[in-house]
Design a protein around this nucleic acid. Structure first.
Lengths: 330, 330
DNA sequence: GTGAAAGCGCTAACAA
DNA sequence: TTGTTAGCGCTTTCAC
């Protein structure tokens, strides 16, 4: 493996000159610089980031911790992070935590050992204190998709606004009795969207009926099961916490001859690609997933460069109207 | 950031002793080792992989180049790689190439600069020579999902066998005139599966009709478009090169009142999760995606440790029968 | 404009 | 069993 010493010898100069030349620092004549760059290319030199770290404490590596790379939602965020960072010379260390707090902690340690410059973390399980070790070792942290605490910057989607738009749309489509399949009751996402529902109901003088709301793990299977349960309650509409759950609801309806949107209006959240590919296209809320990842990476880099105060960025979602809630009569 | 020097001072020994103790090498009394380990956790020490590299030339980092992390297929492979490697103390550098050869080359350079120990590459665009720089700088390479050349180990799914099973099943279900929406004509995947079709047709004395075969980009939209085209040709069945394309086909049928499987049998390939969630569950071929990633990582680690000859691992696929091809009458 | 020298945090060969 | 020493490849003062 060729090092700057090889280049130095080849050019009859010292390593320090090569370093200056290659890093675009001044104090090198243009002619020499050209020669050095040329031989570095000829020799197939690629800078050694490991050795460079030792001298500069800059690794040009960013950690990315996420619950499940297999989820299209998180995968899209990961894409945003990677695609933004690569052209800037950063590489990303992917950590798949499997939604497991212990695994998250292990990944955090690993990122410390690898001396990354910063980490983007998406976690529903991690506690604030789990991440302090990173801060204490001088590694910047930005939370994406969900906040982790006042000490950390974050980039999130505006769940309240998104849900507001969606529920208003449903009301306009004629919904009067909306069932909800939500996630964990304590999760901020669930809370925000439920608050939006309450507000919209209030705006329309409809009473909130908490029997129409169930909390569960956000899976396809639970969508199917809970749909069965809620439909027995004479609801005319069903909001699912995400598109995957909505898919479960839709499947249940198809299996039982329930026509969407005629017999039941269905709405999801996230705007996964699949929502537009199915028989009855899903009305949902579009999340700027790739952008969210990009913004998180952007913010992280800023914090790495200038030690700024924690910042919070809220991204505006967009209503995606398809046919699963019927027509907007307004 | 605490270093072994800090631990050494704290314990009143030298850094080399600390190094030996922490790395489980012998030549340290058990009492001292315990003391050193204890203070290392007390001080919150995490080994410095960057400095360690300089001394050992081992980074414990693996590169993963893939076409699109957003694709559920590649994401599952990535999961296999990550989940296998993490407990072994390796981290993975995720490189999203966007199916772009130039981007792949840039990623390769970046992985060289980061001095990774090895890389798993999934690429349909990279040429063999693009990867030689890695080999030449002593970085091991294993191809996953698709082979790249005799110099490289690979782990692939057996496309020929998988397609064989699928087409035999279709024949048993009554298919006599099978249309195909394939990928690029030159791709090995396409070739293997088409050969399987030809063989099965031959087994059943059915003539191969090349007008029933189209080559295209494997997208949902193209599935939709080509379905339209092929259905006009009086086919009774349609094989799509992957489930995403099959979804396009199904959507076209739903939009045009074509009943699956009654009017048209449809089969896909890959067994994406979504295939079981839609109205008419998709018959497809299950690919061991996570296992494929795991095996690739396993093989890579082997090659890193012992300089073995290139190896090829072929994974057996499994037919997943659902209802989109109707019943098996055999 | 260029070179010399020190140092980053670790491991490993050699001494004691 | 432990310490001493050198060195990995780079950057960065400080001289010249």
């Amino acid at each position: 493996m060729v090092s700057i010493v090889d280049i130095a010898k080849e050019c009859g100069v010292t390593p320090s000159t090569v370093s200056r030349a290659l890093n675009g620092k001044d104090g090198v004549s243009e002619a020499l610089r050209d020669k050095i760059i040329k031989t570095s290319v000829d020799l197939g030199y690629e800078s050694n980031e490991k050795a460079r770290w030792l001298a500069t404490k800059e690794s040009r590596q960013i950690g990315l911790i996420l619950p499940d790379i297999t989820s299209p939602y998180y995968a899209a965020i990961a894409k945003g992070v990677c695609d933004y960072l690569r052209p800037l010379g950063y590489s990303v260390l992917l950590c798949n935590s499997s939604r497991d707090r212990h695994e998250e902690k292990e990944n955090i340690k690993m990122l410390q050992r690898q001396r990354v410059d910063g980490v983007v973390v998406i976690s529903v399980t991690a506690k604030e204190e789990d991440l302090f070790p990173l801060l204490n070792s001088g590694i910047k942290v930005v939370a994406a998709d969900v906040e982790i605490g006042p000490a950390f910057s974050s980039v999130v989607n505006d769940n309240y606004q998104g849900a507001l738009m969606l529920f208003r749309h449903m009301i306009k489509c004629g919904s009067r009795n909306i069932g909800c399949i939500l996630g964990e009751a304590q999760s901020q996402t669930t809370v925000d969207r439920l608050n939006a529902l309450k507000r919209v109901l209030e705006e329309n003088s409809i009473e909130f009926n908490k029997d129409n709301v169930v909390y569960t793990d956000a899976t396809f299977e639970n969508g199917y099961k809970k749909a069965k349960m809620l439909i027995s309650k004479k609801i005319d509409s069903l909001f699912a916490i995400n598109d995957t759950v909505a898919l479960g609801v839709i499947k249940y309806c198809q299996d039982h001859g329930i026509n969407i949107p005629h017999d039941l209006k269905v709405a999801g959240y996230d705007d996964l690609e699949i929502g537009s590919m199915i028989e009855v296209p899903l009305t949902t809320v579009h999340q700027r997933k790739v952008l969210l990842g990009r913004k998180a990476a952007e913010l992280l880099l800023q914090e790495i460069k200038s030690h700024s105060e924690p910042l919070k960025i809220v991204l505006a979602p967009k209503l995606t109207v398809r046919s699963s809630c019927g027509e907007n009569f307004l």
